[in-house]
């Protein structure tokens, strides 16, 4: 165990790229991603876990980047919305968001996409009530939720059909 300090060197992977930096231990993962790495699609709304705008995926599970310290990501695999598209090909969820008009100002969109990516990766059902419950931790102030639910349901349905 290293001695307690105000700074620590960390190394982790973000969207498949390895980064190694010294970070102030008080810096949140969200601030590190935005300010140090310049990946500004991860948004900060409330900074206390309520709005979901900062949701990213750490080691396969969606988490609030405002409630994790950057130093805690040491050794982890982090995915942000910038990592969803493959060679400029949008992910199925991103495409569905476009097709279903699931965004307006876009402030909440990255958070919703990361939550939905976690759902899709864990084989969630496409039942509307379940999707609504799963989205309860993400707030959108302009679109209303109907188009978001439709977009995500369409992708989960297609996924389920492929599995059969």
């Amino acid at each position: 165990m290293s001695t307690p300090g105000f700074h620590q060197r960390i190394r982790f992977s973000i969207n498949g790229r390895i980064v190694e930096r010294e970070v102030p231990v008080r810096q949140t993962l969200a601030d590190f991603i935005r300010d140090a790495l310049g990946l500004t699609a991860t948004r900060l709304g409330c900074e206390h876990g309520v709005c979901g705008a900062c949701t990213v995926i750490v080691d396969g599970a969606s988490v609030r980047a405002c409630l994790m310290l950057a130093v805690q990501a040491d050794g982890a695999e982090v995915r942000t919305v910038e990592g969803l598209a493959q060679d400029d090909e949008l992910s199925p969820l991103q495409k569905a968001f476009l097709d279903h008009h699931a965004l307006q100002c876009g402030f909440c969109t990255s958070g919703f996409l990361m939550t939905a990516t976690d759902l899709a990766a864990h084989g969630a059902g496409s039942n509307e009530t379940e999707i609504r419950e799963a989205l309860s931790g993400n707030l959108c102030r302009c679109t209303g939720y109907a188009n978001l639910v439709d977009a995500i349901a369409a992708v989960l349905k297609e996924q389920a059909a492929k599995r059969e």
């Binding site: 165990m1 290293s2 001695t3 307690p4 300090g5 105000f6 620590q8 231990v25 008080r26 949140t28 601030d31 900074e47 206390h48 310290l69 130093v71």
Partner: peptide, 21 residues
């Protein structure tokens, strides 16, 4: 809305955590 300054330790064992505490 940012955390205050603090020292940070990341023990690997319960024994180390207890000692720090």
């Amino acid at each position: 809305m940012k955390p205050p300054n603090f020292l940070y330790a990341r023990p690997d064992t319960l024994e180390d955590a207890l000692r720090l505490l």
